[in-house]
Amino acid sequence: MGMAGISIWQLLIIFAIIILLFGTKKLRNIGSDLGSAVKGFKKAVNDEQDSKSDSAEPKVEQLKQADQQQDKTKSKEKDQA
């Protein structure tokens, strides 16, 4: 393998250091936040494609509702932690 390549062992060492620094609980929360953000983004893109002729106000309401739902999810996760 060349000098620019990263081996599986190097990736495992980096992953182990990240786990030691942040802890598994925080990594799980970051992962779920990132997943919900990606899910919300995909939904917004799909909604925009489905309703290009609609006005902008219903989209704003949908985004507000999505943000509120994400806030509820985050507060539930914090309560469980």
Rank of each mutant, 00 (worst) to 15 (best):
D79V: 04
Q80S: 06
D47N: 15
S32P: 01
I30D: 15
G5K: 05
A16R: 05
D47F: 00
E61K: 02
L63C: 03
D54W: 13
K39H: 07
G31H: 01
D71E: 12
I18T: 14
F22G: 08
F15P: 02
Q70K: 11
Q62S: 12
G40H: 04
I14L: 14
D67S: 11
I18L: 13
K43R: 06
D33M: 05
Q69K: 15
F15D: 12
V60I: 15
I30Q: 05
A81R: 07
V45P: 01
L11W: 13
G2T: 06
K52G: 15
G23R: 06
K43A: 15
D67K: 11
S32H: 13
N29T: 04
L63E: 11
S55F: 07
I19W: 01
S55P: 09
Q69H: 06
S53N: 07
I19Y: 03
S53H: 10
D33G: 02
I6K: 07
L12S: 09
D79E: 12
D33Y: 01
D54T: 13
T73W: 11
S75E: 11
S36Y: 08
K74V: 06
K78A: 12
I19G: 09
S53F: 00
M3G: 10
Q69A: 12
D71H: 10
A16M: 04
Q70L: 03
K52F: 04
G35D: 01
Q80L: 11
Q70R: 13
K52V: 03
L21E: 09
K25T: 04
S75G: 02
R28A: 01
A66E: 01
I18V: 15
K76W: 03
Q68Y: 02
T73S: 02
I13E: 05
K39L: 09
V45T: 15
V38M: 13
S75Y: 01
V45E: 12
K42D: 02
T73L: 05
A44D: 14
D47H: 10
G23Q: 05
P58I: 13
K76E: 10
A44M: 11
W9P: 04
A66G: 04
G31V: 07
L27N: 08
K42I: 12
V60D: 06
K26M: 14
S32K: 06
V45M: 05
M1I: 08
S75A: 14
G23I: 07
K43G: 11
L12C: 12
A4P: 03
S51C: 14
S32C: 03
G40Y: 00
S51Q: 04
S75N: 06
Q49G: 00
V45C: 03
Q80I: 02
Q68W: 00
S32R: 08
